[in-house]
Amino acid sequence: MQHTSWHWRLFKGICLALISLFFLFPILWVLLMSFQTNEDILRVPPSPFFTPTLDNYRALIAGELTGAGSTLKIAYMKNIWNSFVLSACSVLLSLLLGVPAAYAFARYRFRLGENIAFTLLSFRFAPPLLVLLPLLLYFQDLGLYDTYFGLIWVYQLITLPLILWIVRGYFEDVSPDIEHAYRIDGHSWLRSFLKIAVPLARPGIAAAALLAFIFAWNNFVFALILGSSDVQPVTVGALAFITASGIQYGQIAAGLVLSVIPTFVLALVMQRYLVEGLSLGAVKG
């Protein structure tokens, strides 16, 4: 028996709408908050009806936080830019190092190969706080404290294992004989890697890169300790909204909306690869 009658479809539609509403509600609420003044947000009982204002966004973009009578300079736009630079450079560096490494782990058996791969994965096990203090001391000695380079380096702990292990799985799914066929036709190993292996694993590489980007974007504690406001990303920058004169909910909401936009756009752009990639990984072969 097939449920294709109109009331079944209606029931299904209502269920789906309710589920979506349930999961999207926090995001929706934040979006609404970002167009309200602090007074509107904090009134009791809360109400979805208000006069929308763009003041929150204006303050963020201008970099001037106006609280209860006082004005505070913030660099929120700079923080977003920092987030972008840190995440993008970390992912690019990880791709550059991780994709060839993933290929090597997938195709060749060598001494200590599995141990090296596992050690790289184990970076993800250790809580960041465990390594932060020694890192801070070393970074200060090496002059890496408060530099993009230092943070990008530390971000490799997040992005490199992720890319390495996801992409390795994809390379293992690509038949080595396709590369063999290409090499027998007179191409070098390097060309078969670049022209055959990488394009065939592209969905996996795209998915891994996006995930790594999001993980890097969301990182908080490394940047909090290892950088000052000059290089700090948006996750740390948002702390500025907790001021002496109270928490600026409207500006926090606007800040959140702004900080989500880059990852959101990236996810939309890469959605095609992402879905293809995730489903390819699930159904091997």
Binding site: S175, D177, I178, H180, A181, R183, I184, D185, G186, H187, S188
Partner: peptide, 14 residues
């Protein structure tokens, strides 16, 4: 492999 001047039909087609 590229220098050996051999052609091959693979079992897995490839």
């Amino acid at each position: 492999p590229a220098e050996r001047n051999v052609a091959m039909a693979f079992e897995g087609y490839s």
